[in-house]
Computed example of a mutant assay.
Amino acid sequence: MKTLIIGGSVFLGRALVEEALRRGHEVTTFNRGVSAPDVPGVEAVRGDREVTADLERLVEGRSWDAVIDVFGSVPRVVAESVRLLSGRAGVYTFISSVSALADWPARPLDERAALHEGAPDAGPGGEYGPLKAGCERAVEQGFTGDTLIIQPGLILGPHENVGRLPWWLTRVSRGGTVLAPGRPDRGLQLIDARDIAAFVMDRCEAGGSERFIVSGDRGNATFGELLAACAKATGSDAEFTWVDDAFLLERGVQPWTELPLWAPENPAFAGVWALSTAKATAAGLRCRPVAETVADTWAWLRDIPEAERSFGTERSGRLGIDPAKEADILAAWTASRG
């Protein structure tokens, strides 16, 4: 099978490339060559997807069985890729996000959920969710052939460039008393990038037009289990102090960013860990234990000097709480408990 991956060098894109190569696919990647090296074994085509001439050079004389668009976030740009690749591939897979769903994270959702408003020809600027929704429409309305829309939930795993699990692993590895948010028995819903990659390649090989929410099983780990797995993987003697949501919010701690993966238990986040994955599971999605993901991520991360680790992206912003702020909150919490 011949597969084109737009992106392919970072995190989920890298996992998709590795999975395709493992299956014996002929893999072409298309990227600027600035984020990370390509995986050995691919045909690497350099170019900027925002430049039509680069896309035209990519498609000249080439065709593929499947295209996987990993990082598209501007509908107008995705629509141009779709236009030039129509007729040159059997299936166009677009990696979207549950952020494209209008009622996430406030409600439990499945594939019938409504998308955000978002035009298929919208330019840059605006909120991430509506832009991803517009990209989905650009693919489904513009591609001549099968379309596969993948809406992942919270993704972890080796080579994570967002930095959520890497931040926790780094913090826990330092030891001492660690500020842990909310309740240790709060159920999460996490998925390894490698499991998404295997599912996507299965569906590309099967063909057909579909859309899937792709995440782990609901409650496949609690926050306490996640942090315990971090301690075990790193060999840390860290002790976790669990601090109430309200106490953290009163002190200005930002959910998702200062304490990654923390979503307070209130109506605004009622569906954050409540996505239905029944359709994807019935279609073959299989997920490894979260503890395995944690251990494998540390095996990758530990060889990167701490000063060179990345915690955050342009979209997410800098992740992690300032150590002085963490210490102040821990002291205040201890004092409040008498």
Rank of each mutant, 00 (worst) to 15 (best):
G118D: 07
L148G: 03
V27S: 03
P37R: 00
G153N: 05
E314V: 15
A193N: 03
G24S: 11
T28L: 01
R183G: 01
R164H: 15
R164A: 06
S310K: 13
R251H: 12
P105V: 01
W167S: 00
I213H: 12
D328L: 07
S215E: 09
D303M: 04
R218V: 12
L21G: 11
T281E: 12
A335N: 06
L55R: 06
L301N: 01
R112H: 13
P289D: 05
S81R: 01
P124H: 05
V253A: 10
R112T: 15
L319Q: 11
A238K: 00
E60S: 14
A100K: 08
T234N: 07
G187C: 08
W300K: 05
L319M: 13
L261P: 07
A102K: 14
T144L: 15
D110Q: 08
T147P: 01
E50A: 15
I196Q: 03
W300I: 02
G157I: 00
T3N: 03
G320N: 15
G126W: 13
F94I: 05
L249D: 00
T147G: 09
I304W: 09
S173T: 02
F311Y: 14
K232L: 13
E326S: 13
S276R: 04
V91T: 14
I95F: 13
G312M: 13
R164C: 06
G182Q: 02
A122M: 07
P108V: 03
G320C: 08
I95G: 06
V200K: 10
E314T: 15
P184M: 00
S209V: 12
V17Q: 12
E308K: 14
R194E: 04
T293Y: 01
A228W: 03
K232I: 01
Q254D: 09
R337G: 09
I95A: 10
E60P: 08
C204E: 03
D217C: 05
T257K: 07
A283R: 09
P130Y: 13
P267N: 10
G87S: 03
R49M: 06
R203G: 00
S96K: 09
S276N: 08
R57Q: 12
R194Y: 03
A278T: 14
W298T: 02
A268I: 11
E111T: 04
R107Y: 08
R309C: 10
G320E: 13
A133H: 10
A229P: 05
G176I: 04
T313G: 11
A231D: 02
L154C: 14
N220L: 08
R14H: 03
A193R: 02
V253F: 09
S209P: 08
R174M: 08
I321G: 13
T52F: 11
V172K: 00
L285K: 00
L85P: 05
A229C: 07
M201D: 08
P305Q: 04
P75Y: 03
D217S: 13
R57I: 06
E239A: 10
R194A: 10
W242S: 02
F30C: 10
G90Y: 11
L248M: 03
